[in-house]
Design a binder for these strands. Structure first.
Lengths: 66, 66
DNA sequence: TGATGGTGTAAAATATGTTTTACATCATTT
DNA sequence: AAATGATGTAAAACATATTTTACACCATCA
């Protein structure tokens, strides 16, 4: 599943580490998700969306992998 | 995290088993999620939303557990 | 009564997400 | 040249999600 975390994060002038702090996860988690190592949990997805000021549906590109 | 899966599922006249089939997961998974045993993965959340014809943001009630 | 469909639940196994520690690279600053 | 901040990555440990198998209860229908 694709995501636009890096895009919105940079638009807010946040580093991976700062976003991680705001979401109470490690920097590696943010990095891994941005680089598509794995998808976040639903909880973290909502936390990320809230922190970045977008909806979950807008933050994640739901391709036809379903 | 709260969800409205049961509500939308019944509105569509689907059983837990049928919804499970449509989402390619087991019936127990649907049952566990409806009864808040755990949250679905992000992928499954999108699949459920798509199948039920709603957005992820509308399907899940993001309380202040963040 | 016996069969069927829908739901709730439980344990064990497997898959996936997250943390911690640690190191590497690159750019910028002192 | 050394220090700093941002990013990429890796392995081990731990946490959470999902499957499989199985059984139980209840309602309805043959």
């Amino acid at each position: 599943m694709q995501n636009r975390i890096k895009e919105f994060r940079e638009k807010k002038g946040l580093s991976q580490g700062k976003l991680a702090d705001l979401c109470n996860v490690s920097r590696q988690t943010i990095n891994a998700i941005e680089n598509n190592k794995y998808d976040p949990s639903l909880q973290l997805a909502f936390k990320l969306a809230k922190t970045l000021g977008v909806t979950v549906d807008n933050l994640f590109l739901n391709g036809e992998e379903n």
